[in-house]
Design a protein around this nucleic acid. Structure first.
Lengths: 321, 321
DNA sequence: TTGTAAGCGTTATCAC
DNA sequence: GTGATAACGCTTACAA
């Protein structure tokens, strides 16, 4: 009945006597509103979906923490999905083929989204925000750092401390994903600005940005006739794997080889040596994407915007003599 | 209409002609079944909730990865919530006070659950599985390792490599949570078995099992008149913080102080030195808890069972000369 | 094999 | 201020 709903929802136009009566009945029957029925009626689930490649990658779990917190602050909860680098899974999520889309909006943080994937979202009305991409094409909201500048800052730092043979780990085998392309561009730009030559044998690919990818790539670099004296890794995890490979080869960080990453995950702060990195403001990214998706849920016809999150260089032991 | 539902659900008793017709109409109208309406009718959301203290703690994010995978295999999705050591939040989840309980079952991995909290779940019909606890009281399903034995194995290893002054980090300030109590008991038992004395000044508390907790606790141990020659940490994160404190004090691991943790997170495999630990079979834990909660969703009156997950000692550099 | 109608538990509309 | 009643979009008896 109407009055009960009013009481439950804390509506004002209810007499004190009636409110007390309803409350008593609620207590008596141990009544709990059914959220599903409410959702069917209101059209809002109160849930957001956060889609990441792998939740156990520290950058994503730290991002998830912030997103869950930011969402909780505005009364939303977060469902987490992993695509595991699976294009088919990404497609399902983007097209809404999944049978259980119980959420109001999608925060999509693709490691490997191609533009063509995004085209598929077209017919769906599910609000969507892209995280971590920076190829703004005006169709979807983006929240991301300036990847080119971030990579450039990292390499500039290596140059500033006097390194001249700077390698990079993290380009993708198939060059079709935005993030690695942008970071590669930043690396190239920094070298060019310093009048340094870009050597193809110093550019190593990494499929999953994992510690072991970083380890393997660094091993390959160390085996070169003229090994580098610095390595710029496209993620902190790659950098941690790379550092381990340097030690296993009997060399030292940063003395023989300086290492810098991107992400500023907590693991890097406690690594030995502690890892220099580019810090991404994940609380900012989380807050802004939640704010933005709520606005879009309220008004699906909002114009797409691009939100650039701040980043900054953090110098630690891995790049300081 | 009946037939449409049949087609969508892949029912058999539908004529080919009719099925084609329906499919064409679906395509034409770009029809998508509304999952909320389906849920209201069937009573199943197809979602599980995984509740952990903090998703960015590697052990929990690795567990979450496995739970999401295990759930996906049986057509379920996973909502993740953090309690952040907040008792009020735990209470809400357990009692169903939250207004948006859009899931069929709850996998609850409390760092800090007191028995009294569990009492509150009594009136709720939401299926519940407890993870990581091992104080089986017969009321709820548990999936956990044998914490006492795990701790005992870790300390036995330190004794086996000849250490005699073995400290422990990870007991709780307020001694009311199961996991730390059990791990403390295992530590005590191993020392007693070896005829070693338990020294109160070698037992350090840690509120959040974080790297910085481990760092601070280890610093305190090193400042003792007679510092330990080995530290057993109740989690890998504590151990990683502790190792860093040892290095910052100018000492070496394992030469001066051996360190061992529990969890076997990937970070420990790449740490320097790599971290000895007790490996918990998280894929097993994830698989079994999902299996169990599905059974309980099907039949809420199932008797509570206790599932013990395997664990095993992993010896790495942090405890080998 | 196919169509009709009831009902899941809310919230919103609308008289009173 | 309060009580009936419709509607959200699906699944499923039941009838045809």
């Amino acid at each position: 009945m109407r009055t009960v709903s009013n009481v439950v929802s804390g509506y004002t136009h209810v007499s004190e006597r009636m409110r007390a009566k309803v409350l008593a009945a609620i207590e008596e029957l141990d009544y709990r509103p059914n959220p599903v029925a409410r959702t069917l009626r209101t059209g809002r689930t109160g849930m957001l979906a956060l889609v990441v490649p792998e939740i156990d990658v520290p950058y994503f779990s730290e991002l998830a923490r912030d997103v869950i917190d930011a969402a909780a602050e505005v009364g939303y909860r977060v469902m987490i999905d992993q695509t595991g680098h699976d294009h088919e899974r990404e497609r399902q999520l983007l097209t809404g083929d999944d049978r259980t889309m119980l959420f109001d909006g999608l925060l999509f943080s693709p490691l490997v989204t191609k533009t063509e994937l995004l085209d598929m979202h077209g017919s769906m009305r599910m609000p969507l925000i892209l995280l971590g991409e920076h190829e703004f094409d005006g169709r979807y909201d983006h929240v991301a750092i300036d990847n080119v500048a971030a990579a450039c800052d990292a390499v500039d730092h290596l140059i500033a401390i006097g390194r001249t043979k700077i390698a990079a780990i993290g380009s993708q085998p198939q060059e079709e994903y935005a993030t690695p392309l942008q970071r590669s561009a930043g690396y190239d730009a920094a070298l060019a600005d310093a009048g340094m030559r870009r050597r193809a044998d110093y550019i190593r690919t990494a499929a999953h940005y994992s510690r072991s990818d970083g380890y393997a790539a660094a091993q390959a670099l160390l085996a070169l006739p003229e090994p580098p004296d610095a390595i710029f890794c496209f993620s902190d995890l790659l950098a941690i794997g790379a550092m381990r490979a340097v030690f296993d080869a009997g060399l030292r960080v940063p003395d023989d080889i300086a290492v810098i990453g991107i992400d500023d995950v907590e693991e890097g702060r406690f690594a030995r040596p502690s890892l220099s990195t580019i810090s991404l403001d994940t609380p900012f990214i989380a807050r802004e994407s939640v704010r933005r998706i709520l606005a879009r849920i309220d008004d699906p016809d909002l114009e797409a915007t691009e939100i650039v999150a701040p980043h900054r260089l953090i110098v630690r032991e891995s790049t300081t003599g």
